[in-house]
């Protein structure tokens, strides 16, 4: 009998968790046990899980802090929306159009990843973090003044206003500057989101456990030693960065096609930080942790609804307390002491 290695077993458990969660939520949804606000959150949760997984590839496995991941999500979102709206006449099947939109989103985000990655990955540590932040802000800013429309002649672009695109009167405006993309046909489904998560997991787990993945982790652990072993630093760092960007782009397309309007402001610094919080709280380099943290932290504000105004305050306090408890020896020893006492009392 063939032995299954621990690593691939771990991977299969991750797929299993996603599928089980999908079945649970789907059955809750079909038996109407899910509140309307929570069922509206299902696709965004999927998008955030993919974002968290993709950022974990950069932060956890490549060891680079990226503060501008929402920028890739933004590019993917708008590229996906444009593709889906432009093809609405020629491709009638909604599912197929969603697939094309996600692929287009991923491709454009990957291109941005290459453009950004080449200069960024020369830098190190906090300087790298700040440049990714800067790129995220630039993408948001440029998206804010983009006007894109489509008519029978094809796509039109402008960075001034909607009228200067020179479209035929029958054309439709897809992206309207700061107003964002309007009139999006809702294509994303929970099933599509789940499949995207599974594909993301498949890509990342296979990359991490491949020769390239070991090279990436080697660079993270000791750059000089890795270089001395003949590993091309730039190539592997860029590989992790671009794959991560492409996945973030696909998450963006999934996210955008779940709403009727999407504004560029949605994908700002706060979104980047939110995803980073998922990764860090879930455990850096731990894929399962990222999945769980993304789900729990997206649902948590919904569950805190009874606190109403105080819920974001509570969220902030939870964040600080969790970080201190998990990272401070005294605090974690104190918590362990309480639990040990309890278990002794029970015994």
């Amino acid at each position: 009998m063939k032995m299954i290695s621990k690593k691939s077993l771990n991977g299969f458990i991750n797929y299993g968790i996603i599928i089980v969660l999908f079945i649970i939520f789907q059955s809750l949804l079909s038996t109407k046990h899910l509140s309307s606000s929570l069922s509206g959150q299902l696709v965004p949760i999927c998008a955030y899980v993919v974002m968290a997984l993709s950022l974990n590839l950069v932060v956890g496995f490549s060891g680079e802090l990226s503060l501008g991941h929402a920028g890739f999500m933004s590019i993917g979102a708008f590229a996906g929306v444009i593709a889906s709206t432009a093809l609405s006449g020629s491709v009638t099947s909604g599912g197929f159009r969603l697939l094309i939109a996600i692929i287009v989103g991923a491709i454009f985000a990957a291109l941005a990843g290459v453009v950004i990655g080449i200069p960024v990955l020369r830098l190190r540590g906090d300087y790298l973090a700040i440049v990714t932040l800067a790129f995220g802000e630039i993408i948001k800013n440029v998206m804010n003044c983009m006007y894109i429309g489509v008519d029978s002649n094809g796509l039109h672009f402008s960075i001034q206003d909607a009228n200067s695109m020179g479209m035929e009167p029958t054309g439709t405006i897809i992206v309207n500057g700061p107003m964002g993309a309007l009139g999006i046909k809702k294509l994303s489904t929970f099933l599509a989101g789940t499949i995207l998560i599974l594909i993301t997991l498949f890509i990342i787990q296979n990359l991490v456990n491949s020769r390239s993945g070991r090279a990436i982790a080697g660079i993270r652990d000791n750059r000089i030693a890795a270089e001395a072993c003949g590993i091309q630093i730039t190539k592997y760092k860029l590989m992790a960065f671009v794959v991560s960007a492409a996945l973030a782009g696909s998450a963006g397309a999934l996210y955008a096609l779940n709403y009727s309007t999407v504004v560029p402001k949605k994908f700002d610094f706060n979104t980047s930080i939110l995803v980073l919080v998922f990764v860090v709280l879930g455990g850096i380099g731990n894929l399962r942790g990222s999945i769980i943290a993304a789900i729990v932290l997206t649902v948590l504000p919904e569950l805190l609804r009874e606190f109403q105004d105080y819920r974001m305050l509570v969220y902030a306090i939870v964040l600080i307390v969790v970080m201190i408890v998990t990272n401070n020896e005294k605090a974690s020893a104190f918590i362990k002491g309480i639990f040990n006492k309890k278990s002794k009392e029970v015994a």
């Binding site: 932060v59 802090l65 930080i273 980073l276 919080v277 860090v280 709280l281 850096i284 902030a316 306090i317 964040l319 600080i320 970080m323 201190i324 998990t326 990272n327």
Partner: peptide, 9 residues
């Protein structure tokens, strides 16, 4: 990173 997230909190 832990300190960074705390600062964000």
């Amino acid at each position: 990173l832990a300190v960074l997230i705390t600062a964000i909190g």
